[in-house]
Every structure is written in C-alpha cells, then in structure tokens.
Design a protein around this nucleic acid. Structure first.
Lengths: 347, 347
DNA sequence: ATTGGCACTCGGCACGCAGGAGTGCCAGAG
DNA sequence: CTCTGGCACTCCTGCGTGCCGAGTGCCAAT
C-alpha cells in the first residue's frame, strides 16, 4: 500500500527529527531507514504529507519537520508502547520503594519521572476527597490560642490555629479554656471521626448548637477552622515539580518557549489544569502544542495520566517541547503511574 | 583625592554595566555621570583600576566590565543602603500579613522576594531546634499500624507510621494495642511535653524501660519513630524556591550559567549550604561569583541573611548573576527578613 | 507507481571592507 | 604632580558579496 509507506515515511521523519533536531531530507531518510525505495519516491510522499499538513519545511529547500498534526498522527497511529525492560522496572521499584511517607512518594516520583524522561516532571498530590477523618486533636497553645489538628486516613495532617479572643476583649482563663475544650473534644470526635471529608464538614455545622451557650463562640471558631482545613485541603491541591534543569537543553527558541513554561511551573493552578485535563481514565494522554488551552505554551507538549484510586484519581505527567520522544515518554509516564498507584494501595 | 575619584569611577562603571549589560567606555561615563573631568582622565583611572584587578576589558578596545573583585569593592565600600519607601514597606506588609500558616508565610516570602528582586528567591523554613514539644498523639490506624504525630511549639507537625508486627508474626488484637497505647500515652506525654527537641529525644531513650515488659517492643518502636521525626526534622531542613522564571532573563551565557543553577535549585542541600553559610548575624551577606564553594556557580552571586529568632536563625536570600543590582537586592532581602522575623515573633 | 535526471532555490559560511567605539600614550598646561 | 587634548592603533560589528551544498519539484522514461 502506498498509504502505508507514506505513514512509514512520516514515522521515519518524526524519529529522525526527534533525534537530530534538524530538518530531515529525502536522501538521509532512505539511508537511515530501510525503506526500499529511492529518494525521489520519498520526495513524492513528502509532498503528499505536506499537502495533508502533517509535515512542513522551515524554508524552501530545507528538509521536512513534523507539524503538530504530524506528531498527533504519529502518536495516534504509529506508536506501539513497548513495556519497559525488567531492569528498568526493577530500577523504578527500587527507587520508589524506599519512600517512607506520602510526601516522600510524591517527591521520589517526580524525581524519577524527570530522570526517566529528561523532561520537567509534574506530580499532583493524591486527591483526598474520599479520605476519612482519622482523628482530630485540640491543643491549647496559649490562653487565647488553640491549635486544631486534623488527621486524615491517608496519613495527611492539616493544622489551623484558632484565635479565641479579640485583642482587648479581656483574656479568658487557661482553666476555662481547658474545661471548654474537654467538653468539646468528645462531641467533636463523635461528630467527625470515621466520616468522609464532605460528611464531616456537614456534621460540623450542627456542632455549636450542641454545646453550652458560653462555649458556643469557641465551638463555632473551631468548627470554622476545621471546615476550612477540610475544604482548603480539598481545593488547594498541591503539586510537586522536578527536573527543571532539563529546560536548559532547550537551547534555541528560548524566550519564546522556556520563559512561559517557567512561569507556568510556578503557577500551580495552571499546571494542575494542564496535566489534569489531560488525564481521564487509565490511558496516557498526550496533548501536543497548541491543542492545549494556553496560547503561550503552544510549542510544548504534555504527556500525562491519572493514578491512584479510580474513584479519586490524581494526575502525573511531564511537560516538554513538542519535539520529544513520545513513545519513550509515554511508557515512562505509564510505568511510574502504575507503580505509584500500587504503592498507594499498599499503604 | 584622586583615590576618591577612582572609586567614583568604579561605582559609575558598576552602575552603568548593571543597567546596560554592556562594557562601559570612558566617554559614555563622563556623559552620564557628572564626574567633572575629561574622558582622558577617566581612562587613566580605569587603567589604575584595571591594574588593581577591579575591572577588566573583554577584549582590547572595548569598554570595561567589573570583575568579581570590583563588585566586592563596590558592595563593601560604595554601597549605602537606603531604606525602602513607605509605599514599598506597605506593599510588603500587605503581602505578608495575609499568611495564615507557617507554610504560607514561607511561600509568600519566597514569592515576594523573587518579585522584588527579579531574581530566584530561596527561603529556608525556620529551623526549629529550639522549639519545644507541644503535644504527641498516638492513633491506631489498623491493628498492626500506629500513627505517631508530633506537634511542636512552632506549630509544625511531623508524623510517622509505626509497623507493630512483622508480616507473619501473627496479628495482635486491636483491643490489645489500644490498651498498650492507653498505658503508654501518659508516660510518653510526661516524658516529652514542654521539652526542647534535644531533651525530649534524650528522654525517649529511657521510656521503654518504664513500661510493662510485654509492651516494650511497641514502646521501643514508638520511641524510635519519634526520635526519628525529631532528628529528621532537625536535619532535613526544608526550603522553598521561587521566581525561577527570572532565569529566562539571563539571555546570553546560558549553558554555562543557567544549567548549573537549575541543577543547584533542585539540590536543596546545596542551596541550603549556599544561603546558609552566607548568613551569620543580622547583616546581609553577599557572596560574589567564585567566592562561593561551588565551581559551577562561579558566575552567580548570592545575597542572603538570617531571619527569625537569634538563637536559631534560618536563612533567606536570592541567587542571581554576578551582574546584579546589589544595593537594591540587599535592601529587599533585608526588608523581607525583618518582616518575616516580626511575623514569626507574633505567631 | 516508481525512478533517475536535471534545473532551481535558498540558507549558511567565508571573505573583505568600512565604520566606530574605545584604548594607550604622549606632550603640554595648570 | 595632575589633568587634558590629540593621535595612532586595535578590534569588534555589520554589511555586502560570492560560492557551496543540501534539498526540492518536475518531467520523461520504465
């Protein structure tokens, strides 16, 4: 089939261009890949591919370069993901198994991913909307200040400081506060322990009504702080970034590509959207160049996937130039996601 | 004094070069700065400054550029730090006062600092060796797993998971564990509450001997986990980095300067050393180019200072090219450090 | 459908040249 | 002793020129 050969030519162009970073011409192509046809034939194919918008030439009489559309075709139809070698799998698990802590898992993942792909890696902390309240602790710091600690089933801990008295309202007594806290603690625990965040937050609303009137303000404030910690935790989803040193390899096209990327890397909300939108379901998603929502990032691609429990997945992935090794990157992203998911299941 | 004029020339060269990023010649100098002498005189002074190693020319018959030694002289003898305008002060306090949390204070500081200086900002989390143990909480997660939470007076929370049984040793009973924990808890609290980290860690060593023999293993493990959390917290001092997008302004000298810097920014230990060594005492410290311990960072400077309580200061500062606005940067670093210190005192 | 041949295009590089910024030095004035 | 104007020299920079080669597009032949 002539159509098949054309795709083979596209694949060859993508592969060579990714390796050499230079426009690839017809002669070099038949030399490196055993296409079994002459350069002239390849030229005809190239002309056809260019008509379809899959490749382009930077200027007349230069080699061809894949367009975004060309990469898209390559990723969709020409990529077969090979599993990693067993040595690689072992390296991955060795690297991740040392983690002691949720934070540590995320840190290691981001590091690993950036090293495997030589790109900038981004890992979202697991979303915990489905986690339950393991424990709540009230600690009096000073007569007017209470520390509220929220411990979730995921092992995550959130804390808030509650101010009990407005400045100038006159101080309350330590003993008073202790007594109030002692009264409040069991009710609080009964109201939230074991519940999911959303339910616990709802239960908190009723709490102030249950306590003695003189303790109501305090209960109110504690409930607010806890509710804040819960929703805050839910919304302000954190992410970790690593491997920014790989940006130095961008070489040319610097101001146009790296600056906006560096800016995006500090805007965690943007990043989250970037890798989050991409990854629904178990498959690895690839977004190429201007397919994304951010105009400034039109020369970068995102390779991402979800991980963690199916009911509350988090995202993880890499950001890099459109000119990247898609198959290798996709395999790396997929593998890391699988391993991290497994580790989270065990924990 | 002729010596005075020479220094004025050096100052002018530094100022102009920092602004224009181009070697500055004698004519341009007398035009922009009211030196009251002719270019020829300035040339003589330049020759002298060059003999002293304070300035250099990139090639014959180009303007002069300050050397590291020149910057050093400029910083040591030619810089008078002006306080910030009241508008700036207000902007700073507005920005930082919104913080709710220790983490938030650090995040905001790093952001603020990078925006003020247009450099890469680095802020070390406050060192807490002098903080005391506010509370310890033991939570049973599963029959074989215990969550240990350490709450420090600074409001910082550390957590560790303790495995109670080796796989295959046969499970213990939930009730058993609860009973043991109930026995252990008051002793544990008595042993550590209110103490400084170092003292508390020492007290932990005696704990296992006090409990019933059958609970000794558990007590042992809990003590280990707590000790680990304390020392780990002390050693693994965390830092926050921000403003990496400012690296895009480096423009030239890219691979030589930005790559190693990006790498250093991911090596938090290196960073810590970088800004940590610099800042002893209340003053702002400047390390210029190769004065630092890292050869690869010989074209970058560090401006840093300590902040927080005098008995356990943390560091904060910026990293940037040797060609930077030292006075402005130093003022910004100093101001932010002061504000952060004040906020920490209040909290 | 494929291929070899051929004319054509255009970027990249070396070369040479002129312009200009900047220096170093020297002799003279204050 | 210090400052200044003048002058010759250096060397970077930009520009125009011309050549080379890679690569293309097209066409006629198989």
């Amino acid at each position: 089939m002539v159509e098949d050969r054309r795709l083979a030519v596209l694949r060859a162009i993508v592969e060579d261009y990714v390796r050499t970073e230079e426009p690839v011409g017809s002669r070099a192509l038949v030399e490196r890949h055993r296409l079994g046809v002459s350069p002239a034939t390849v030229r005809n194919d190239m002309a056809a591919l260019e008509d379809e918008g899959l490749i382009a030439q930077p200027h007349t009489s230069a080699g061809r370069v894949p367009t975004d559309k060309g990469y898209r075709m390559f990723v969709d139809r020409l990529t077969t993901l090979k599993p990693m070698s067993s040595a690689e799998r072992r390296a991955i698990s060795n690297f991740l198994d040392g983690a002691v802590d949720l934070d540590d898992v995320v840190q290691r993942s981001v590091r690993l991913l950036s090293q495997l792909t030589r790109q900038v890696a981004v890992v979202q902390y697991p979303t915990l909307s489905s986690s339950t309240v393991r424990h709540v602790e009230l600690v009096t710091l000073t007569p007017t200040r209470l520390l509220v600690v929220l411990i979730l089933s995921s092992g995550r801990v959130e804390q808030r400081v509650v101010e009990l008295a407005e400045p100038g309202t006159g101080g309350s007594d330590v003993a008073d506060v202790e007594a109030t806290v002692a009264d409040l603690r069991p009710r609080l625990l009964a109201a939230v322990i074991g519940k999911r965040i959303a339910e616990a937050a709802a239960a908190l609303a009723d709490l102030p009504a249950e306590v003695r009137e003189e303790d109501r303000t305090l209960a109110q404030r504690v409930a607010e702080a806890l509710g804040d910690a819960m929703s805050d935790h839910h919304a302000d989803e954190r992410i970790a970034v690593g491997g920014t040193a790989n940006l130095a390899r961008y070489g040319d096209s610097f101001d146009s590509a790296v600056r906006p990327l560096l800016e995006a890397l500090e805007e965690h909300v943007v990043l989250l959207k970037l890798i989050g939108e991409a990854s629904t379901g178990g498959a690895v998603t690839v977004r190429i160049g201007a397919e994304g929502p951010y105009h400034e990032l039109s020369s970068t691609s995102v390779v991402a996937t979800g991980y963690g429990p199916a009911e509350a997945p988090a995202s993880l992935g890499i950001v890099g130039p459109t000119r990247m090794d898609y198959p290798g990157t996709m395999v790396a992203v997929r593998s890391v996601a699988r391993y991290v998911s497994r580790i989270l299941d065990d924990a």
